[in-house]
């Protein structure tokens, strides 16, 4: 079984997680830029974070044989802080990078005018740079937030098949599928979505244009819930090919639209196991 986790915040995870993921079949990840729990207060802090997503983290992942790509954006939550607005001027510089396969996470947190502006501007950047977009949906007021996100996506002129609307559930999936966007699901231990619920949604809507991720970060989360979902799919009667479609070929197809997904050479490009500063203890 090969697994591509299309949304996971590895910066917050340990080398134990990388080792467990690699052992379980995770061979590729995309790490979207988001917030870090502690709100940031200026663009410099974001620049260092973005550097890590195109520098240190792919290197770290490569030590475990995992290909790492990133998405870059000013996230909706921090878009509300005027001290962080200048991040929008930094984002294009990073969208030019080889390892960046989408603009994201953009979208809504509290649906403020500031979030509107950041969302719209960054969707325009996705069009300009020829990149797909990863849209986060709010945890509160989710159904209306999802509908409004789809409106903004429509107005932006980006092709719907170049957009994934993420963190969906039973209530919000239909409108996203109807709009022609990709449907993203974050499988969490207790909250957003569970493997058994995911399997039911796959039965109802089919395995096409669906991305299943762990969205594991610094909160209570589990980087192996993609694997648990694959197992639950098989127990429910899905074929190995269905599992491969959802957990490998779909994310490859979605992020492949960037023209920058590099799963063959990524590891050698980022260094090998030999001489690794991580496996040997670092300095």
């Amino acid at each position: 079984m090969r697994i591509f986790d299309p949304h996971i915040h590895m910066t917050s995870r340990t080398t134990d997680d990388y080792a467990a993921m690699a052992a379980a079949g995770v061979k590729a990840v995309v790490e979207p830029a988001f917030w870090l729990g502690q709100p940031r207060t200026g663009p410099g802090s974001f620049a260092d974070y973005f550097d890590s997503l195109v520098g240190w983290e792919p290197y770290r992942a490569a030590q475990f044989g995992i290909a790492h790509h990133a998405t870059i954006a000013l996230n909706p939550k921090e878009a509300n802080d005027p001290r962080c607005r200048a991040v929008l001027d930094l984002v294009p510089r990073y969208l030019a990078k080889d390892g960046v396969v989408a603009v994201g996470e953009i979208g809504y947190d509290s649906m403020t005018p500031e979030e509107d502006e950041a969302f719209t501007r960054q969707l325009a950047m996705a069009v300009e740079f020829g990149l797909p977009a990863l849209v986060h949906t709010p945890h509160r007021d989710k159904a209306r937030g999802t509908a409004r996100s789809l409106d903004v996506v429509r107005e932006s002129g980006i092709a719907p098949e170049r957009v994934v609307i993420d963190h969906l559930n039973e209530v919000t999936v239909k409108q996203v599928k109807d709009a022609g966007c990709w449907a993203g699901f974050s499988i969490y231990p207790d909250t957003k979505m569970s493997p058994p619920r995911m399997v039911e949604i796959l039965k109802d809507y089919g395995p096409e244009r669906v991305l299943v991720n762990s969205a594991a970060d610094w909160g209570k989360s589990d980087p192996l819930l993609t694997v648990r979902t694959a197992e639950a799919m098989r127990e429910a009667g899905f074929t190995d090919d269905d599992v491969d479609l959802v957990l490998w070929r779909n994310p490859v197809a979605f992020y492949g639209q960037s023209g920058r997904l590099n799963l063959e050479d990524r590891q050698s490009a980022e260094g090998t196991f030999e001489g690794s500063s991580i496996l040997r203890g670092g300095s």
Partner: peptide, 8 residues
């Protein structure tokens, strides 16, 4: 300063 690893 703004380079990714390969640019650096």
């Amino acid at each position: 300063r703004y380079g990714d690893s390969r640019e650096k």
